[in-house]
């Protein structure tokens, strides 16, 4: 909980300072950036499948926060809905932001189990996207986040091919690869990634793996943890609890 308090304190400093001093958030960010030491953090995220209600607030907030095109095709984070029927067939869809499709399409008596799976960039420890980028425009920061240098990416899309999770897309405006950054601009200001911030059920738990006591620490202690496609040896830093074997 120390971290929480620290964040609270930090945010208080930012906002009160911002209001009192009439400074823009950016000006404060720059001051804070000097104090931000990338080597002191290593970020990861936990996702509790049993808590996700599939409301899609994370998808919507992510698009707003990160200027992701507001069409239902480009996502830095998205939520999949799995329905496993009694005959063991599986159907999956990405929940729509205008959640009309959420209605019950199937006769419920045929449903064996059903759940939502939030997805985002896994910020792999061994990222295949970084390995294949021909110009080194995508890289892993010291605090463990995979970023894309939008000024140097040539848009060859090799990284999009190499990502096993479909987490990347070519941004239609900038014509360079784009992906989840764990809201890096928020992290350096001591804020949470926006999907974590707005999740009404705390299905997403964000934390610093270098801090001993953190919500993520507790999450990984109290749950059996699984990652997506472990056989590919990418070492994801997005940890799932209660993940179903059908999910890939």
């Amino acid at each position: 909980m120390e971290r929480r308090d620290f964040l609270k304190h930090l945010c208080w400093v930012i906002t009160s300072g911002g209001i009192l001093g009439g400074l823009s958030a950016d000006a404060w960010a720059k001051m804070l950036n000097k104090d931000y030491d990338t080597t002191k953090h290593y970020y990861g995220m936990g996702i509790d499948i049993d808590k996700c209600i599939g409301c899609g607030r994370c998808m919507q907030a992510c698009k707003t926060e990160n200027d992701v095109p507001a069409v239902p095709f480009y996502f830095r984070t998205w939520v999949e809905r799995y329905v496993i029927r009694t005959d063991r067939t599986v159907s999956v869809n990405t929940i729509n932001m205008e959640s009309d499709e959420l209605g019950d399409v199937l006769a419920e008596k045929d449903v064996l189990r059903s759940f939502f799976v939030p997805k985002l960039c896994n910020q792999c420890d061994h990222p295949p996207c970084v390995q294949v980028c021909p110009v080194g425009a995508t890289f892993k920061t010291d605090d463990g986040v995979i970023l894309v240098d939008s000024k140097r990416c040539i848009g060859c899309r090799y990284c999009i091919q190499a990502c096993p999770y479909g987490a990347r897309y070519l941004h239609p405006k900038t014509r360079v690869a784009d992906k989840c950054t764990f809201c890096y601009h928020r992290l350096v200001r001591g804020l949470l990634p926006v999907c974590v911030e707005v999740c009404p059920k705390q299905a997403r738990i964000f934390g610093d793996m270098k801090s001993i006591a953190s919500p993520l620490g507790r999450f990984t202690r109290m749950n059996k943890i699984h990652v997506l496609k472990p056989s590919l040896n990418t070492d994801p830093k997005v940890y799932y609890a209660n993940l179903d074997g059908e999910v890939n």
Binding site: L7, K8, W12, D26, K30, L147, D149, Y184, V194
Partner: peptide, 16 residues
């Protein structure tokens, strides 16, 4: 690149 990423504007202020 890290600097530019960090300097991006935030839209959600955070509950605090």
């Amino acid at each position: 690149s890290e600097e530019r990423e960090a300097a991006k504007e935030i839209h959600y202020a955070g509950a605090q």
